[in-house]
Write a protein that binds this DNA or RNA. Structure first.
Lengths: 134, 134
DNA sequence: CTAAACCCTCCAGTAACAGGAAGGTCAAGA
DNA sequence: TCTTGACCTTCCTGTTACTGGAGGGTTTAG
């Protein structure tokens, strides 16, 4: 059995985060020592490690909660997880495309700004270029 | 002079957002009609349009506030904006790299999940693959 | 006179925590 | 014995850039 500090070390999550997961309902309320300190079993740590891994893959806590609910019901969440992963991949691809467009736009503007003189009258600076993008 | 609804139409920002920008200090407190309704001049709309354009380039409001402060002081913000753009481009590139790594990892896991049978005993499902990534 | 379309302020919620205040607990050392 | 430091606790606030909604005033058309 581990105190929250040890659990933190073992899982790579901060104590704050572990408490937050409890409050958010991702893990059941931890058992307490007589003095009120939370204690965690190896099984608890496994659950926390799973959450950490899924978070590292950018799954929202809501999805992770769903997955864990499958497990808590004794059902294999695999099929569900596979579709979540597909959605996740699609969402990330979409986000990458958006960011690439944004970057291209920014590079274009930056190049334009390079070619303009520093204009004290503010008639032809890159700021106007931004404004003109509307 | 325009009411906030017209300003919204003209700028593509919602009325809510315009009020929020006022509260956040990005635009000065709007003049009011005797009945308390906000009124906006063409100059105000220009400022709002600038904010919208900069937001479309994903500049945080804080940066935009800085840029506008330059303008309000009568200084050309161009050099400052150029460095902000460079930072922005670097940040976006960084984010893209992170997302690409994430996607690659997800694809790897997804492929592994494809090759596993649906396992009622939950001994060999993709969820364990996730857990093993820790 | 009323209904629709405006506008106002204020409050809550979003995602996933982090920071910090104020205080209880426990083991080791002077 | 006392104290110091490292733990732990709860509770509250702040983060980003808004959005939604409650509850209410104003104006215009029919």
């Amino acid at each position: 059995m581990y105190q929250i500090g040890e659990a933190s070390e073992q899982t790579g999550l901060t104590a704050k985060t572990i408490r937050y997961y409890e409050e958010a309902g991702l893990i059941p309320p931890a058992d307490r020592k007589p003095n009120g300190y939370r204690i965690y079993s190896d099984e608890d740590l496994d659950r926390l490690r799973f959450i950490r891994s899924a978070r590292a893959l950018a799954f929202p806590l809501e999805d992770i909660e769903e997955i864990l609910a499958f497990r808590d019901r004794g059902e294999p969440p695999c099929l569900y997880v596979m579709t979540l992963m597909e959605d996740q991949i699609d969402g990330i691809s979409q986000r990458i495309r958006e960011l690439e467009q944004l970057r291209a736009e920014l590079r274009r503007l930056h190049a334009r700004g390079q070619s303009l003189p520093e204009d004290v009258d503010m008639k032809s600076c890159v700021c106007h270029a931004i404004q003109a993008e509307a």
